Computed example of a mutant assay.
Amino acid sequence: MRAKQGRPTSDELLRLQDVRKVYGRSRNSVEALAGVTLGFRRHTFTAVMGPSGSGKSTFLHCAALLDRPTSGSVLLEGEDLTTMKERSLTKLRRNRIGFVFQSFNLLPALNVVDNVTLPLRLAGKRPNRRLVDEVIERTGLTARRKHRPGELSGGQQQRVAIARALVTQPVLLFGDEPTGALDTETALEILGLLRSAVDTGEQTAVVVTHDPVVASHADRVVFLVDGRVSAELERPTVQEVARQMTQLGAWARRQQPTRPERVI
Score class of each variant (00 low, 15 high):
residue 2 R to K: 11
residue 3 A to D: 08
residue 5 Q to H: 09
residue 14 L to C: 03
residue 15 R to P: 03
residue 25 R to C: 04
residue 27 R to W: 09
residue 36 V to T: 02
residue 47 A to K: 01
residue 48 V to W: 00
residue 52 S to N: 10
residue 54 S to F: 03
residue 57 S to I: 01
residue 68 R to Q: 08
residue 72 G to Q: 07
residue 76 L to Y: 15
residue 78 G to L: 09
residue 81 L to M: 14
residue 82 T to Q: 07
residue 88 S to M: 09
residue 90 T to Q: 10
residue 95 N to F: 08
residue 96 R to Q: 13
residue 96 R to M: 02
residue 98 G to R: 04
residue 107 L to R: 02
residue 109 A to I: 12
residue 109 A to D: 12
residue 118 L to K: 05
residue 122 L to Q: 12
residue 123 A to K: 13
residue 125 K to P: 04
residue 128 N to P: 05
residue 136 I to Y: 01
residue 138 R to S: 13
residue 144 R to D: 08
residue 149 P to W: 13
residue 154 G to W: 05
residue 155 G to E: 11
residue 163 A to P: 00
residue 165 A to F: 07
residue 167 V to F: 08
residue 168 T to K: 13
residue 168 T to M: 10
residue 169 Q to T: 15
residue 174 F to C: 02
residue 175 G to N: 04
residue 176 D to S: 07
residue 183 D to I: 07
residue 185 E to F: 11
residue 186 T to E: 06
residue 194 L to N: 04
residue 196 S to E: 15
residue 205 A to K: 00
residue 216 S to Y: 05
residue 226 D to Q: 11
residue 228 R to L: 06
residue 228 R to E: 05
residue 229 V to Y: 04
residue 232 E to Q: 15
residue 233 L to H: 04
residue 235 R to P: 03
residue 239 Q to S: 15
residue 240 E to S: 13
residue 254 R to T: 10
residue 261 E to C: 06
residue 262 R to Y: 11
